[in-house]
Amino acid sequence: MEYRYLGNSGLMVSCLSLGGWVTYGGQVGPEVAQQCMKTAFDLGVNFFDTAEVYSGGQCEIDMGVAVRKFGWKRSDLVISTKIFWGGKGPNDRGLSRKHILEGTDASLKRLQLDYVDLLYAHRPDPDTPMEEIVRAFNHVINQGKALYWGTSEWSAQQITEAHVVAQRLNLIAPLMEQPQYNMFHRDRFEKEYLPLFRNFSMGSTTWSPLASGLLTGKYNEGIPPDSRLAIQDNAVMRRLRDGLDTEDGRIKISKVISLSTVAKELECTTAQLALAWCLKNPNISSVITGASKPSQIEENIKALQVVPLLTEEVMQDIEDILMNKPTMDYNFRSS
Rank of each mutant, 00 (worst) to 15 (best):
W154L: 00
W149G: 05
F41N: 02
I61G: 00
T128M: 08
R188Y: 12
G26C: 14
D320C: 09
K280R: 10
N170P: 05
T39N: 02
V28K: 10
L95Y: 02
M202I: 13
K88A: 10
N138H: 09
I318N: 07
S204T: 12
G144W: 11
E221P: 01
I141Q: 13
G56P: 05
N142M: 14
V13P: 01
L210D: 03
A66G: 06
W72P: 02
T205D: 09
N138P: 05
S335H: 13
P30E: 14
A235R: 15
V307W: 08
L210F: 10
K191C: 07
T327L: 15
A291V: 03
V236F: 07
E313G: 07
F137Y: 11
K73A: 14
P326N: 14
T23Y: 04
P224S: 14
N138A: 10
V78D: 01
L309H: 13
F47S: 01
S227W: 03
D226I: 07
T269E: 08
E319Y: 09
P126L: 03
V236Q: 02
A146H: 02
R333P: 13
L119P: 00
L266G: 14
P195S: 14
G10W: 03
N331D: 13
K73P: 07
E190I: 13
A106T: 08
M130L: 11
I61M: 08
A121N: 01
I253V: 14
S17N: 07
G94Y: 02
S260Q: 15
R123C: 06
P124K: 04
G89Q: 10
E319P: 04
A156M: 14
A211Y: 05
R168V: 09
Q232Y: 07
Q35C: 05
N281P: 03
W72S: 02
L113N: 01
Q180D: 06
I321S: 10
Q34L: 06
L175Q: 11
K109R: 13
K325D: 10
N331I: 10
V236C: 04
K69G: 11
Q272E: 08
I318Y: 03
M237C: 07
D187H: 09
R168K: 15
I288F: 06
V13H: 00
N8F: 14
N142I: 04
I288W: 09
T289Y: 06
P225Y: 13
